[in-house]
Design a protein around this nucleic acid. Structure first.
Lengths: 242, 242
DNA sequence: TAAATAGTGTCTGTTAGACATTATTAG
DNA sequence: CTAATAATGTCTAACAGACACTATTTA
């Protein structure tokens, strides 16, 4: 913020420190979540079916009100936990959407967040959501409010993130093989990647992967080494989209 | 947003479409601007001195209220015009800051924006700012509210932007030489760049620069060709920070 | 054994970075 | 002329992309 939330009452010092509804336009603030995962060979988003007007019965992004005593970031983390039943997922701000009539009832400003999740068993229906489901992002129809645009922004952000961060691993489980990670990249980017060059690349980038020492044959063939996410937060050099 | 701004009154259909103050926690929404320019061999931010409590007399980012009938993005563009006296500058969302007590008086959520400006003659004092000035970012002291953190985020974003977008040119005038552009990069990144490699690079990147056909000797020595910003919005390949 | 997948090696064209050289102005 | 800056060229080491080859499992 910055200037003067109490501008109109600044000449009255007794009002300078108290909340007065006439001092500022009334806004509602919500958080919306773009929760993405990779499952069944598709990039999927977590959607909920609205049980109330407006847009009753329409699919929408999960989300909800920011409470008076919690930060906006905390509200997003809380909603994510409520919707997925899991904590500790990667969560970052995507953008804020504040068109005057994006909600037909009143002035609502929404802060959108992007979360990358591993393939969770099944979405937990939220307290106020009639239904929840993973929907492939290229099969999503019209969403409520401006959620279609928000989802699009989230997908594009996720695709870009894979290039210069190790966050592709967030889509995998705690331990994964190079081939599993490569399939994540292929699905999110919609391209085919050379397995051999990909292997050389990701195992060569400093801090991206940490070998566990274990291996698995769950993909068939020769046992593959298992890795964890490494400590790097930025990749040097970045991966490149085919 | 998403779920139900009118949750408490959903069982009462007559209230579903009207604004009712009891339906949601009261928030004020503001925009804050990180306006950066390059002048006098330094990356500088536009700051205003607060004329009112709290933080009276402290430097702060310019900004102000979002009006009821304008979008958040429009509010940022309006404030930028009011503060700089210029329109059409690059402006993008930086992030939203919503800690419960970031403003001591009440709950304020602020959407921060980043603007890159050419070296404007002198800041126009805003209607409610006692004073305005360009301050080198490494000489900025403690700011009001959480503006120090916001400014830091803005500077880091600007540095990153120069790598993969042609936005460095926003710091120059409409027409500029390669050397002028290089000095912008050197100042923002705080590194020295090889003039010859920089020249080859930026003139080689598709869509980054457009030759005007004109040249100038304002930098001394052999006349330098003048360029405009090209149409590209992303650089392939990106420039790299020394 | 064959089939499947993991992992390494090799070659080639491109590019970043270092630096030499030439070009064109002012004084 | 000299000094200053612009612009182009050259060399080398590193790397991306293409693809051959070896390794280790299951059936």
């Amino acid at each position: 913020m910055g200037s003067s939330p109490c501008r109109q009452s600044d000449d009255n010092p007794i009002l300078a420190d108290v909340y007065s509804p006439s001092d500022f336009p009334p806004f509602a603030v919500t958080v919306d979540l773009v929760v993405l995962t990779v499952r069944a060979d598709a990039l999927c988003a977590l959607l909920v079916r609205r049980g109330e007007a407006p847009f009753r019965g329409r699919w929408a992004l999960p989300g909800g009100f920011v409470r008076v005593d919690e930060s906006v970031d905390d509200a997003a983390a809380r909603e994510l936990r409520e919707e997925t039943g899991v904590g500790g997922l990667h969560l970052e701000q995507l953008g804020t959407y504040g068109e005057p009539r994006r909600d037909p009832r009143m002035r609502v400003v929404s802060v959108a967040y992007l979360a990358l999740a591993p393939d969770l068993p099944v979405p937990v229906a939220g307290t106020d959501a009639a239904e929840a489901a993973w929907v492939p992002v290229d099969r999503v129809g019209a969403l409520a409010f401006d959620h279609g645009r928000i989802l699009g922004d989230g997908v594009e952000r996720a695709r870009a993130k894979l290039e210069y961060t190790p966050l592709g691993a967030e889509f995998c489980g705690a331990e994964f093989t190079v081939a599993e990670l490569r399939r994540v990249y292929e699905i999110v980017w919609g391209v085919e990647l050379d397995p051999r060059n990909f292997h050389r690349k990701v195992t060569g980038v400093e801090g991206m992967l940490e070998a566990t020492g274990e291996s698995t044959t769950r993909d068939g063939g020769r046992p593959a080494a298992l890795f964890r996410r490494g400590p790097a937060s930025v990749l040097h050099p970045p991966l490149v989209r085919g």
